[in-house]
Design a protein around this nucleic acid. Structure first.
Length: 220
DNA sequence: TGCCAGGCCGGGT
DNA sequence: ACCCGGCATGGC
C-alpha cells in the first residue's frame, strides 16, 4: 500500500487516540516559544524548563530586557540547558535581528509570506531549519512542518522515507501529504514527539507503541 | 557509568 | 555537496 496521505492520517488517528490533544504552548507567550525553540537545540526539554524559569525570574522573557542584557550574564542563567555560551550568543543574535528587522515584534513575520519569513530567520546565525520552523509554526502560526529528531526517527522506523533522507525531504513527506494547515501541523508534530519520547527511542524496540503495524511498504 | 537529549556552525575534503 | 568536531549540562 502506497497511499501516503492515508497512512499519515492513520498514524495521526492512532496517536491522537493514544495521547489525545497535545495543545502545545497554548498559554505561552511568543517570546517564550521562540526562546524555548533556541534553548532546546539538541537538549532535553526538562533542562530547558529550568533555564526558562531562571529567565522568567530575572524578568528576561521580554524582548527589551533580553536585548539589553549582555551575553555573559545571560549565559550563566541558562546554564542548565547545556551549550549555554553558544545559546546565549544565539539568543542575542535572534533578538538583535528581530529588533532591526521586525521592530522587535514577531507579528511582523506573520505579515510576510512563509517562504520569505523562513529565509529571513535562516539568515540569523544560530537559527537552522528546525528552530526556524518551530518559531514559524508555534509562535507565528505559519503552516510549516517541524522536523526534529523524533520526527525523523519515527518516519524512518515506519518506512515513510529513506534512511538517508535529510531535513527537506522529511519535511516534504508531511507537507505534501497533509492538509496545509498550522493547527494540523502543530498537533501532528507534538504527537510525534509524544510517541517518540515514550516508544521510539534510538535502540529500544517499540513494545506497546500505538504505531505498531504502521510500516509503510517501501518495496516499489 | 556512560550514554543521550526536540541542532547548528565552521572548516575541511 | 557531505562529513566532522565542537559546544555542555543534568537525568537515567
Amino acid at each position: 500500500m502506497h497511499d501516503t496521505p492515508a497512512i499519515l492520517r492513520a498514524i495521526f488517528d492512532a496517536l491522537y487516540r493514544a495521547y489525545g490533544p497535545q495543545h502545545w504552548w497554548p498559554g505561552e507567550s511568543r517570546i517564550e516559544i521562540a526562546v524555548g525553540a533556541i534553548l532546546t537545540q539538541n537538549t532535553n526539554w526538562t533542562h530547558v524548563e529550568k533555564a526558562m524559569a531562571y529567565l522568567r525570574s530575572a524578568g528576561l522573557l521580554d524582548w527589551k530586557a533580553l536585548r539589553e542584557i549582555d551575553a555573559a550574564p545571560l549565559a550563566e542563567l541558562i546554564r542548565p540547558c547545556g551549550y549555554y555560551r553558544v545559546k546565549a550568543r544565539r539568543l542575542k543574535n535572534f533578538v538583535e535581528w528581530l529588533w532591526r528587522n521586525c521592530d522587535g515584534d514577531l507579528d511582523a513575520l506573520k505579515q510576510k509570506n512563509l517562504a520569505v519569513a523562513r529565509e529571513a530567520l535562516l539568515s540569523v546565525n544560530g537559527i537552522g531549519p528546525e528552530t526556524a520552523d518551530s518559531i514559524l509554526l508555534y509562535a507565528v502560526g505559519h503552516a510549516t512542518f517541524v522536523v526534529d529528531a523524533y520526527t525523523a526517527r519515527v518516519a524512518r522506523r515506519h518506512r515513510l522515507i529513506d534512511e538517508a533522507a535529510g531535513y527537506d525531504a522529511l519535511k516534504s513527506v508531511f507537507e505534501d501529504n497533509l492538509e496545509s494547515d498550522a493547527e494540523v501541523y502543530n498537533e501532528y508534530h507534538a504527537l510525534l514527539v509524544a510517541v517518540g519520547k515514550r516508544h521510539c527511542r534510538p535502540r529500544a524496540r517499540c513494545e506497546g507503541c500505538p504505531l505498531e503495524g504502521f510500516d509503510h511498504d517501501s518495496d516499489a
